[in-house]
Design a protein around this nucleic acid. Structure first.
Length: 497
RNA sequence: GGUCCAGUAACUCAGCGGUAGAGUAUCUGCCUUUUAAGCAGGGAGUCGAUGGUUCGAGUCCAUCCUGGAUCACCA
């Protein structure tokens, strides 16, 4: 039976309901209790003989003659309805017979245990709240040995993402992921607020983009007749705010990067960035560690998370190590003291592409990314990034090749990036100009020179630490999902047709 | 973009050269304590698209579309 035929049948039912003088889409609805409120303390609900009105979606129907059972679900839980013509009267029972799985109804009645021992609402009256016109995909559940076995699950990955509302409706576990996501994001806000940070919102539409290495989306403003960029990071605006006198700011928002999509990349993704005046890299490590430990332990109540094939233990002290130390550990190569030509040869022999204009710093980072990062499973702050690839970070006083920067790596992937922020306007100008040179050599992801930002720096910016965390990836880890699409409600999909 | 896998009824899938199938859903009938309700019956599919091979194509071949995995790219 095609969709159209099924819908036609629903329309016929709708007409019958109207013939009975019933509005299938009434304005008013009544509900005295949410379902979870009546699921606890069942005996006393039964003893009290209190009449309640529950409302929700009818998710299953088992009708047999003049009596029938249905399952009613709201966002708090699910309960069985027992509907008998003796209780409802003939007329109301007629309406019940016209109800389908998928309808929203309310049901008035008292509680009891059925012969099979299931706690149920003995329904006195059914009220139709919203008629379903398109049958929901059939999913059946059965409890075997205490385990919930599901049949004919709505599991087609493409359909789940394209029709997310069905995924959420039919797969309660997936709804749970987004409830957890919301909890985590709230906890992050609270964590920041408690530490004296203020939350700010900075432009998504920017005349120039910056703060990361990425290709932007371009859009157009008609009135101004200018092209604008969707932001790739909030960094440069948050720094302007520190110039403006705020000492601790954070923003949680979408960034947009016009690049490939895969298991860990969506073109728009959520990022937390924060900046703290008079802090530095160590302060940022402490913050990141405390926040992630807190989310794992206090919010989710877990120590260990299975992600990307590994078990990552989050409630611990995170390792802190220099990139060159980690490379030495894995490869026995002293990259800092090795000659640039040796590093280049090492990569060339392994057929690893070297972008044009790469100096020693970038070569080190490529070696690290290729051979070391995938092996860092437990949380590790990888410090001492090459300055060459860190145009917004301060150089280390004791080694001009290195920047005071770290990335937090877990399960072989990057989760956060932080620096002691560069506040020397002259140095910053030179670094951005070096980036512009790379750009001229064809590196479309190199930074652009932002004169307004440089001018702001010239007015003076205090020393500070700054950190960015990819929220989607953090949620992936904390909810143990290996695909970013599982933690984004409406992930980017290719258009159909 | 490369490679591999998949697309058949609303859902989950079988069929892999010879008249399109199953369970669920849906519809009809019976049924006043079911819970993957049951019993009986019915309807339901351009077999992702387009070409080709063949007497004959969901089935073989080619191309394309869509999705997934993986690599590349990319924090």
């Amino acid at each position: 039976m095609s969709d159209n035929q099924l819908i036609k049948l629903r329309k016929e039912k709708l007409a019958k309901i109207r013939e009975l003088g019933i509005d299938p889409y009434p304005i008013k609805s009544e509900r005295t209790h949410k379902i979870d409120a009546v699921l606890c303390d069942k005996e006393s609900w039964i003893e009290s003989e209190e009449e309640v009105v529950l409302a929700g979606r009818l998710v299953a129907m088992r009708r047999q003659g003049k009596v029938g059972f249905g399952n009613l679900e709201d966002d708090s839980g699910r309960i069985q309805l027992f509907v008998s013509q003796n209780e409802t009267g003939e007329e109301n029972y007629e309406l019940f017979k016209l109800c389908d799985s998928g309808d929203f109804i309310s049901a008035r009645g008292k509680f009891f245990f059925t012969n099979m021992g299931e706690y149920s609402l003995r329904v006195k009256e059914v009220v139709l709240l919203s008629k379903n016109m398109r049958p929901l995909p059939a999913v059946k559940e059965k409890i075997v040995d205490g385990k919930n076995v599901r049949y004919d699950e709505f599991s087609d990955i493409e359909l789940r993402y394209r029709k997310r509302y069905l995924d959420l409706l039919l797969n309660p576990d997936h709804r749970k992921v987004f409830e957890t996501r919301s909890k985590i994001v709230s906890a992050i806000r609270k964590f920041m607020d408690e530490r004296g940070y203020i939350e700010v919102e900075t432009p998504i539409l920017q005349p120039l983009y910056g703060g990361a290495n990425a290709r932007p989306f371009i859009t157009h403003h008609n009135t101004l007749d200018v092209d604008l960029y969707l932001r790739i990071a909030v960094e440069l605006y948050l720094k302007r705010l520190i110039v403006g006198g705020f000492e601790r700011v954070y923003e949680i928002g979408k960034n947009f990067r016009n690049e490939g999509m895969d298991r860990t990349h969506n073109p728009e993704f959520t990022m937390l960035e924060f900046y703290e005046a008079y802090s530095d890299l160590n302060g940022m490590m402490d913050m990141a560690e405390a926040m992630i430990n807190h989310l794992a332990k206090d919010v989710l109540g877990k120590d260990s998370f299975h992600y990307n094939g590994y078990d990552v233990v989050l409630t611990q002290k995170f390792r802190r190590a220099g990139m060159h130390e980690l490379v030495e550990e894995q490869l026995g190569m002293d990259v800092l003291n090795e000659d640039e030509s040796v590093l280049r040869k090492f990569l060339e022999e392994r057929k690893i592409e070297i972008p044009p204009g790469s100096g020693k710093g970038r070569l080190i980072s490529i070696i690290y990314e290729e051979f070391v990062e995938p092996k860092l499973i437990q949380p590790t702050f990888v410090c001492d990034f090459p300055k060459e690839i860190s145009p917004l970070a301060k150089a280390k006083p004791d080694n001009p090749l290195l920047a005071d920067r770290f990335e937090l790596v877990m399960a072989g992937g990057e989760f956060a990036n932080a620096f002691s922020e560069l506040n020397d306007p002259m140095d910053q100008r030179m670094r951005l100009e070096a980036q512009a040179a790379l750009r001229a050599m064809g590196d479309s992801e190199a930074n652009v020179v932002d004169e307004d930002f440089l001018e702001a720096l010239e007015y003076g910016m205090p020393p500070m630490g700054g950190l960015g965390i990819g929220i989607d990836r953090l949620i992936m880890l904390l909810t143990e999902n290996d695909s970013i699409k599982e933690v984004i409600l409406f992930p980017q999909m290719k258009p159909e047709n």
